[in-house]
Design a protein around this nucleic acid. Structure first.
Lengths: 218, 218, 218, 218
DNA sequence: TATGAATGAGAGTTCATTCAT
DNA sequence: AATGAATGAACTCTCATTCAT
């Protein structure tokens, strides 16, 4: 899944820029197939370039993964934007979860980054880009009495994290299981007299949690 | 968290048994901290023994992980049994999820085993041990109109998998976030006029999914 | 004794080619000194490169040994060719045995390959390359009544295997003992009224024997 | 002042002596099957005792191998004695070579010790025990004009070493190949007008050669 | 700039040998 | 005396990263 090219600060020669994007696309494919543990050599071979070339573009494997994840975040943000544009908030919310799940499902590494938390900063970025549209969506949903009012945009980070954990449960030839659990969570998001315990997480808290996960990994 | 000692066929000398359990406990700690990718050397050092000693007790790293997971499964089964014994099905269900989450939270590797599925057989075992009590619990819950009737014991594998993904979100000094999402899922488990899509997964399907995950990892 | 360079399919950079040959030469020396059990680390150190470099050139220890043996086989084939070119068959035969012995003597591992049979395929290759010239040599020798007529080219595999076993018997400052036993065997190769028992071994039989030896070793 | 100086170094308890012999027998079997590289653990298990027990009887693996080889040497000496007792020197010589070969063939490790020279001292011992009977045999053979007179007892060390190298060439269902090469060597041992180069090796030389081989191994 | 090649620091595993019961 | 257990030192092989063309 070649993600849209990102804006690069420095000007690169045309072929260099092409190599750079090739590497990111290759990373997407290989990470998707083998997870974040895939070797850089493999990715480079997949991109049709040499490993050393990868190191000219990215100081280390970590950074290539980051770049790849940044592009994933772009895609996630686009999904949130489109969902918020839906006139029916409930339909928008449903679409948001389902399309997010599709994105996650297409990338094993994205599961890794959400589950094993590769880098806290990326997480913050993801929140930053999706919060505003989600908040708009939720506001309208509450207005119409479609969505419970003790849920906030930041709650969707853990929610997607949870859904990401079961993306791999697809078995060819059978209905895709995660939809079932999206529906379960959607049922939980309906208005209810019983309030959820504690408050929605603050962005800071989510960042700290993601960072602490990242720290564990080294 | 030293798990309950497992029944060992052969009698071990006192010191050997101690070392064996030390290794498993060390494995729990180290796996908890760094996931199933942790090195055996690390675990052995943590246990205060030589790597070769680990190899005397377990033919390879895989087997040590298996032993550790087996003990986790015992604990999980105990949780399911106690939950089923609760006279109030809803309270039992709540306790089941919360205590399961606590167990998972204390072991990063348990997340791995649920998320990344180290070994399909272990997964099958886990299902096997928890299905019967859960099914009893659900049956009573449905009778009393407390629990929606299109959910089955096997649904709790993905549900716990999901919850496992966010166990790491705890931040010292703040209320434990996962409880919030347990509550969200519990809300979704209340009876509802809208049925969930597709059927509860069959044990075979869950096993196949777990096995295919395990295959990816190698 | 650096053996003649072998034809390599892919073009290697100058320094890589140098390292590659250095590794093979180092393998020759180290195998010669310690047999095929020598460690790759040792060989690499001898070649002045890192072990990992050895692994860049050869997928495993086995393959490095194979490459080294291939070069030995080239040398052995050259010896057979030159011997067959000698106008005097007896002189040719003598030269063949003596020069073969010199080759073997310079390489402990060559003894290994003949004695302990590292790889049945290599053995087959060796036979294949030396049989034709030897057969020509023997044919002329029989014509002139110089060589007994119940001996065949394939007999020289076991004969060299035998001689290989005593190559190590040289002691500095004393006449080289193996020559004495070459002479003994040459005496046995003179025409004789008493026929040797059984037939010369077929190539298939030699290969099977070599393969069964290889199997034992693992 | 006890007159009966025991031939046995130390008295062993009956069961200890039994274990000791069991270990040597197990060593023979296991060495025969897997060569001198077999693990002590394997041998001990084969003997039905613990490794540590092996270390009570033998200071290290080397010494157990030595003991095993010593028993082989006894057998070899017996063969030489019986051969010398044959009234027909040529028949005696033939029997000596064939039975020696059988002995070697039954023990992979004996090939190792002769080929790869585990220990120079053992070699000396072997010579020592077989020289006298062989010399008597040869003397009579020369008298009758049956055996060439420039061959000596010490020549049979390299000769057996050579034959040992091809003991493995047997293939089930086919005539045993080594007999063919014994016949070849016997043909070379017939009287001949052409003298062999250099002199028969002195015992010292053979010992030095064997010792230098042993040194290589470490 | 891009490449082929090289490397150091492990990871998993094995084995001769020693220790503690 | 004999055993179960423990160990340190190897050995094979891998990979992120750097160097030399």
């Amino acid at each position: 899944m070649p993600l849209s090219a990102a804006a690069e600060p420095r000007r690169l020669r045309a072929d260099a820029a092409r190599n750079r994007q090739r590497l990111i696309d290759a990373a997407a494919e290989v990470f998707a197939a083998r997870g974040l543990d895939a070797t850089l050599d493999d990715i480079a071979r997949h991109a049709g370039v040499n490993v050393a070339t990868a190191y000219r573009h990215f100081t280390n494997k970590h950074e290539l993964a980051d770049e790849f994840l940044r592009q994933c975040i772009e895609a996630a943000a686009a999904i949130a934007d489109e969902a918020a544009a839906d006139p029916n908030p409930w339909a928008g919310l449903t679409a948001f979860l389902e399309r997010s799940l599709d994105l996650i499902a297409s990338n094993r590494a994205l599961v890794d980054v959400l589950t094993r938390a590769h880098d806290g900063d990326q997480f913050a970025e993801l929140l930053d880009r999706t919060s505003a549209p989600l908040e708009r969506l939720l506001a309208r949903g509450r207005q119409y009495g479609m969505i419970r009012d003790d849920i906030a945009a930041t709650d969707f980070a853990p929610i997607l994290e949870m859904l990401g954990a079961i993306t791999g449960t697809g078995v060819p030839g059978l209905p895709y299981l995660p939809h079932r659990y999206i529906a379960l969570i959607l049922a939980g998001l309906r208005p209810s007299p019983q309030r959820l315990p504690s408050e929605p997480p603050t962005p800071e808290r989510l960042q700290r949690a993601a960072a602490s996960k990242a720290a564990r990994r080294g």
